[in-house]
Design a protein around this nucleic acid. Structure first.
Lengths: 355, 355
DNA sequence: TGCCAAATAGTTAACGTACACTATTTCGAT
DNA sequence: ATCGAAATAGTGTACGTTAACTATTTGGCA
């Protein structure tokens, strides 16, 4: 039985196409790139030859010759002390660049303040003015996002959203997690780890600089799971950010609800986890989001039981490679790419730290 | 604030190096490829110029010129009705090939029977005879693996293991899961989902065609977790493969152990899951391995609670890309690449199905 | 019919590298 | 000092594509 060789015997190039169509390579290239200046008849012959011989362009040679550069603008919130989350994307960008930069793909990272529409607008202005070959962005502010999309729609420049999505717009694609499903997953998992009659608390730290759409979706998914189960669900929301206040609030809930067994933290799990004493901790399970360093420590010392990763690095990596697929390989792009919802716990955290 | 441009202004080629070292491109190329025929003095000058200017070879041009092909032999067990697991790798191989085949990397898939050393030996003979530029293999049989390694060690041909590892050999690298840690993870998760005093059953279907080293490691990790916890652990092993026998065996254990709450299935979870009635199922949790279609169905209908994925597609994909890194990019390769231990349940299975 | 612009087709020079081939230099032996 | 082989350095072509440039054909109009 002969081994399954995956190589094509003899690669056919534009020369072979030209020969088969009885023309020189000039018109072939024109047809391939829709550059016009080819009579209808020969155009047909060339297209037929391409079909017959199964031409696949040699991207190496193509790239070598036309050293056209593609610059992707990356519109991403600034990582801060409070929200270090956005730092994680960088390793993904770097990794992707290693693979695609030989093909002339560069990125310009344009950061903005997540709670400051003016700073976002400034970046959009910049992007519109400078003219990029692709936009990879977190669509935080609706109106400005629309403005950007409208400008680039006519230019046929790919705009891909990541992290959070605004459905129904003219962006080429979205890459990220399904927030609602992640909430549903958290509920499913929490349900497994507490007793049938235990109560559940949904907690969150609300900050103006956060992306509320995503958080609502998480909660919605979570509640969907428990709909009609008779499970008692409590709610705690802090918008002070003050440790004392949070601590008191949580303690009060604990005292008032002896049957509390699970906590689902929509956002700011480090703050919530800090508000709980180890003595209290042994009585409930806590699940939340984001594999940032602080949370990883809390997971390791047992203050948090489960984290759901949004895989920022992977979003960044795959996102940039989507531009490579689209711009260089001319592959079709799906309207959305949902990354797996990874469940991370103490026993497998080390395998998720650097990816 | 200017955007962080990641592009290099002007790429340095061998021409620039030659100029700086006061030679023509000929000797530069000779130095770059250690082809000799260069005097020590000019060699030094050239190396210095390379260092000074920070030369990075243009892999596109390089590849275009020398259309040297690399063929990787993939030694992988044959997928069968009983063990469809090995089918999953194919999509990973295909995906990887799409990216690396422009660089001249091909693969030859050589399958063997997992429980038949002779068939393995045949493939090893083939590999030794035909001469490959890289070997990607599951080292199922020790002696033959050694034989292969010894032959290729002198030739400096990269041999990478995947799926299961034999430590301490001269292979370049390993990519796969850490089986022991996966067992530990399963224990940790199961511990979360059952009550403090529940008993646990470790079950497995032993078949001669299986990889026992991996299974032992899983069990070892599992037991490590429960060491000194006082948890009562039972054991069920079937080596008949007969449905009736398994069913009876499992039933007997259920009857004899009313406190049984969790089942860890080392291998053959579909068989074990089938042996349990829905009525019994609601009293325990079941965790096991392999995202094969049969198991996915069982997960969906609730017969299985958790599956740990070995990510065969990712192993295949990343493995082939390792050869690309090594052969084309000349990047250093780590001795092992452990993939994340993914926890899959009903609520997130759909995100794991096609990757 | 002849002329000329427009349309179409053909030619060629790179892109950066690899490597075979040719040219030059070095240096020991006479 | 001269010759010539060995060692070293330089040259040129090709890889497949792109796109500018040149050559040819077409066809409308006087």
């Amino acid at each position: 039985m002969p081994p399954l060789k995956t190589s094509s015997n003899k690669s056919i190039g534009i020369k072979e196409i030209a020969e088969r169509a009885n023309v020189s390579i000039g018109p072939v290239d024109k047809v391939l790139h829709n550059r016009g200046g080819v009579s209808k008849a020969t155009r047909e012959r060339i297209l037929q030859a391409i079909k017959d011989l199964g031409y696949t362009p040699n991207i190496l040679a193509s790239r070598l010759k036309s050293s056209r550069d593609y610059t992707i603008a990356v519109l991403i919130p600034e990582a801060t002390e409070i929200i270090p989350f956005w730092l994680a994307h960088n390793t993904g960008f770097e990794e992707a660049l290693k693979e695609v930069s030989p093909f002339g793909i560069n990125i310009s990272i344009l950061t903005f303040e997540q709670n400051n529409e003016a700073s976002f607008k400034l970046r959009v202005d910049e992007v519109l003015h400078d003219g990029y070959d692709g936009i990879f962005m977190v669509p935080v502010f609706y109106d400005e996002t629309i403005r950007l999309l409208q400008h680039y729609k006519d230019l046929n420049v790919p705009v891909i959203f990541f992290d959070s999505n605004i459905p129904g717009l003219s962006n080429l694609s979205f890459i990220g997690n399904n927030s609602k499903d992640s909430g549903y997953l958290a509920a499913n998992l929490l349900d497994y780890t507490i007793s049938k009659k235990g109560d559940i608390l949904i907690a969150s730290i609300e900050r103006k600089e956060d992306n509320h759409i995503q958080f609502s979706a998480r909660e919605e998914g979570f509640l969907t799971y428990f709909k009609n189960t008779g499970r008692r669900i409590l709610r705690f929301t802090d918008n002070t950010g003050n440790e004392q206040t949070i601590s008191k609030g949580i303690s009060a809930i604990f005292n008032d609800n002896p049957h509390l067994e699970g906590i689902f933290v929509v956002n700011g799990i480090d703050k919530i986890a800090a508000a709980v004493t180890p003595a209290q901790k042994c009585n409930y399970r806590m699940i939340g989001y984001d594999l940032i360093e602080k949370n990883i420590q809390l997971l390791k010392n047992g203050a948090i039981d489960f984290l759901i990763s949004q895989q920022p690095q992977k979003q960044a990596y795959q996102g940039i490679k989507l531009f490579y697929d689209y711009l260089i390989l001319k592959k079709p792009i799906a309207p959305s790419y949902y990354l797996p919802l990874d469940i991370v716990m103490k026993a497998n955290i080390d395998y998720y730290r650097f990816l």
